[in-house]
Amino acid sequence: EPLWIRPDAPSRCTWQLGRPASESPHHHTAPAKSPKILPDILKKIGDTPMVRINKIGKKFGLKCELLAKCEFFNAGGSVKDRISLRMIEDAERDGTLKPGDTIIEPTSGNTGIGLALAAAVRGYRCIIVMPEKMSSEKVDVLRALGAEIVRTPTNARFDSPESHVGVAWRLKNEIPNSHILDQYRNASNPLAHYDTTADEILQQCDGKLDMLVASVGTGGTITGIARKLKEKCPGCRIIGVDPEGSILAEPEELNQTEQTTYEVEGIGYDFIPTVLDRTVVDKWFKSNDEEAFTFARMLIAQEGLLCGGSAGSTVAVAVKAAQELQEGQRCVVILPDSVRNYMTKFLSDRWMLQKGFLKEEDLTEKKPWWWHLRVQELGLSAPLTVLPTITCGHTIEILREKGFDQAPVVDEAGVILGMVTLGNMLSSLLAGKVQPSDQVGKVIYKQFKQIRLTDTLGRLSHILEMDHFALVVHEQIQYHSTGKSSQRQMVFGVVTAIDLLNFVAAQERDQK
């Protein structure tokens, strides 16, 4: 057995438009009618409502009807409940999964919650491996369901041993009777949507819809739904939504950006999952974080739909894509998950301010006199920076000697690579993860907040409520011999709460 199987392995699926269902090699399930009293909570997966979006479509000038398939009504709160249950049931049916076995899954959280929910009911041990950027709410729900959680670096490539995929496979090879159901490759993922989600949409719309818009992560949702719609409703256009920084969209030119990270969760990847059939997507749109969270908040405030950030991405694209539809036509959007997962993220004004998705003037509360002053007023001194090749031991000596707790790590040209902190280095040394002679590049981390000289002290204040420091950066445009230009970030300084307090105190003292 291989040590790991690539999540982007070539698909062996034989589905073709027009091929009889009787030739399918898979076990198919028909939607079942729910009894009045459910035998367990797993029976509350599927049969989610279709809700008309009344205000947002009109606000953006849509002539067509805009409908939302509300997947956050599933038992675990997301569309991923469907595939989690289906993968477990299919693994039980073919004898792969037996009582007492362990389920391991690399996930952005929602599939993990679905699997942990099913594992709690069915009696399996469950280990979820997820990147650090995923919300604390997801972690809390997983723990409450009895799952064990392993976190991995957000910026690790999918084929790196440190990625959530790599760590999951390492655990599988170490733990007896453990299984990775593997949402990236498992046919049960798109089949769950082909058999149930798509049929529900067709039934709820009486077979009449002209466009379907869905955000894409593993691709199982859009693949399964689109294949069924292509068979039953061939005139329906399928629109895929991919965040900026991901590479799922086609044509490839759409993916060209210097951005590699994004805040919206559960969609987009740096590889093409095996289950994603991009041939059934008629057109791709890219979405960005700001519009995703703005539209998610709009869905909550104006439509009462308590959905997550990827739902915002989907609707932001839908109001663009559906401009081509006329009166009497219908566009369906998939709202994948609930706001429950993001209470401390985009639902929080403070978080939105820190990330730059909300401006101070958007909030009406009274601010102190210094709130709208610029960061450049602080008069920061030149920063202490270190090269990635310097040793951890030497870096600790320098920081202690100069009285700093942290320093930016830059390359020879001064471009920011990340940050090192005294606390992080000492804990890594004590844990045996690094040696004093190791290069400081081994303990770089990139989960820090950046701020510009033109940003306000109010925004800085919000950042420092949650973080010990902020890195002050400025952009530099560099022209190359080819005539092309590129933008790079340079370090201007490091600012802490002490710097802000000293500035405010000094100004008030001078005024007296």
Rank of each mutant, 00 (worst) to 15 (best):
K433F: 13
F346I: 09
R459W: 10
A407I: 14
R488F: 14
R488W: 14
L453F: 13
E361T: 14
H468W: 02
E327C: 13
K355Y: 09
K402I: 09
K283E: 12
V386S: 08
S381A: 15
F404N: 02
K449P: 02
D405V: 02
F271L: 05
D349F: 02
N341G: 06
K359G: 02
R459G: 10
W370F: 12
R374N: 13
A413L: 13
E365V: 11
W370L: 13
D467M: 08
I463R: 08
D455Y: 11
D270R: 02
L422G: 09
L430T: 12
F404S: 09
M490N: 15
D438T: 02
V415G: 12
L422I: 14
A311N: 02
E401H: 12
K367M: 12
Q256C: 13
V443Y: 13
F492D: 10
L335H: 02
V443F: 13
F469H: 10
T274D: 04
Q354P: 05
L422M: 15
D289V: 02
V440Y: 06
L430N: 14
F271H: 02
V494I: 15
T454H: 08
I398F: 12
T454S: 07
P408L: 02
V443I: 11
L254H: 09
H372F: 12
P436Y: 09
I267K: 06
C307G: 07
Y269D: 02
A296V: 05
A301H: 08
E360L: 11
S287P: 06
T257L: 10
S481T: 13
K366G: 09
R278L: 05
L399Y: 14
I334K: 02
H474D: 02
V386N: 02
I416F: 08
Q435G: 15
A413N: 14
S313A: 14
D337C: 12
V264S: 02
A292N: 04
G304S: 02
V491Y: 02
T496M: 13
E253W: 02
E412G: 11
Q323I: 06
V319I: 10
E360T: 07
A311T: 14
Q487T: 14
G356P: 05
F503A: 09
T344Y: 05
I239D: 02
T454W: 14
L363A: 02
V409W: 02
E401W: 06
P436D: 13
Q489L: 14
E397L: 11
E303L: 07
P243I: 05
K446H: 11
V443E: 15
Q489T: 15
F293D: 04
T261G: 02
A292H: 02
V415S: 11
D270E: 09
H372C: 13
L373G: 15
D411Y: 11
T421F: 02
V420T: 14
Q511L: 10
K286F: 02
F404P: 02
G240V: 15
P408I: 02
Q450A: 06
S437T: 04
P436W: 09
V494S: 15
K433S: 08
S481C: 13
F448N: 15
P388E: 04
L429G: 12
L429E: 02
L306K: 02
I463Y: 12
S437V: 12
P408Q: 11
E290R: 02
A249S: 02
L471V: 13
S486W: 09
D455C: 14
P383I: 10
V494A: 11
K402A: 05
C392T: 12
T482F: 12
E397M: 10
N288I: 13
M419Q: 10
L387W: 14
L384D: 15
D337F: 02
L500P: 13
I451N: 13
G240C: 15
I396Y: 09
V375C: 10
T456Y: 11
T389S: 09
T456K: 13
M352P: 02
A296M: 06
K484C: 15
L430A: 14
R459F: 11
S461P: 14
L422K: 08
Q435C: 14
A497E: 02
F503P: 12
H394Y: 12
T389C: 07
R452L: 14
D438G: 13
M298R: 10
G268L: 04
Q323R: 13
R374V: 09
D510V: 13
P243R: 02
T456L: 11
G328R: 13
C307N: 02
T294H: 15
C307L: 06
G483R: 13
D499F: 02
V410W: 08
A382Y: 02
T391S: 12
